Amino acid sequence: MNTWKIREIKPEDNQQVKELVRSVLVEMGVPKVGTAYEDKALDDMTRTYEGEKKVYYVVEENSKIIGSAGIAPLTGEEETICELQKMYFLPEARGRGIGMKMINQCMDFGREQGFKKCYIETLPYMENARKLYHKNNFEVIEKPLGNTGHYNCTVFMVRDL
């Protein structure tokens, strides 16, 4: 039986999610500029993901947020392409099948919202994340789609929904 659950973010989760995202980025050696680290959205993820065609999920275990991910329209491609955003897991969440469940839940949401494709940006040295995306039918493409503002992300992936 799982000791964790995936649920939608609540306002009281905002600070934990911000700390989780930033701690994983620091752990991975990600630049603090031109990546999710400096996103203003991290200050209020609940508000960022309010509205139509957006959702942000957290993984909760023993009252602690151990992972998170969101889906939203890809800026500049809003009609048909969604973006898998800010998917991060603390070390204790990794290797337990949680990432796979999270991606499935996010892809289901994207499909329900009428999106045809899902896009993600990552970094070359985030190998485990790239393996997980590849297992979930994401394929590397040459150039970025949309306008995420994450100019330090150099790996672009997309999949059909």
Rank of each mutant, 00 (worst) to 15 (best):
Q85R: 09
K10H: 15
E83C: 01
P144R: 05
M45F: 11
D13C: 02
C82K: 05
V33N: 11
E12D: 15
C153H: 08
N2D: 11
C118T: 04
T75A: 10
V140H: 11
V21P: 00
P31C: 12
M100L: 13
L84Q: 00
G51W: 10
G76W: 10
M100G: 15
K143A: 09
M157H: 09
M157G: 00
E92H: 12
E77W: 00
T48R: 14
P144W: 03
H150I: 04
A72I: 07
D39M: 08
Q105T: 15
G146R: 03
Q15T: 02
K40N: 13
G29M: 05
Q16Y: 12
E8Q: 10
W4E: 07
E142G: 15
K135H: 11
W4L: 02
A93E: 06
V26S: 11
P31H: 09
V26G: 07
Q85Y: 00
L132F: 14
G110V: 14
P144I: 03
E139P: 04
G146T: 03
M28D: 15
G99V: 08
F89Q: 02
N2V: 06
E112P: 07
G97R: 09
A93S: 08
K54Y: 11
C106Q: 08
D108P: 01
L20R: 12
V155M: 00
R111P: 02
V21H: 00
R22C: 08
V17C: 06
T154A: 11
E8G: 04
D44K: 00
Y151T: 08
D43F: 11
E83S: 10
K32V: 03
V59A: 06
M1D: 15
R159Q: 09
K64N: 09
T154I: 01
V17D: 00
K64F: 13
M45V: 14
S23R: 04
I65N: 04
I66M: 06
G110E: 04
I103S: 05
L132T: 06
M45D: 01
K117V: 09
E77S: 13
E112L: 12
L74P: 02
V21L: 06
S63F: 03
Y88G: 04
G149V: 05
K54S: 11
E121I: 09
P124F: 02
V17E: 01
E142C: 11
V140W: 13
V17Y: 05
T35S: 15
M100C: 15
V155A: 07
I66L: 04
G97Y: 12
G149Q: 03
K131T: 01
G97V: 12
C153A: 13
T148N: 05
V158P: 05
L90C: 08
D108C: 05
M28P: 00
K135D: 08
S63C: 04
E92D: 12
K101F: 13
Y151C: 02
I6Q: 10
I81M: 12
E121R: 12
E139K: 09
Q113P: 03
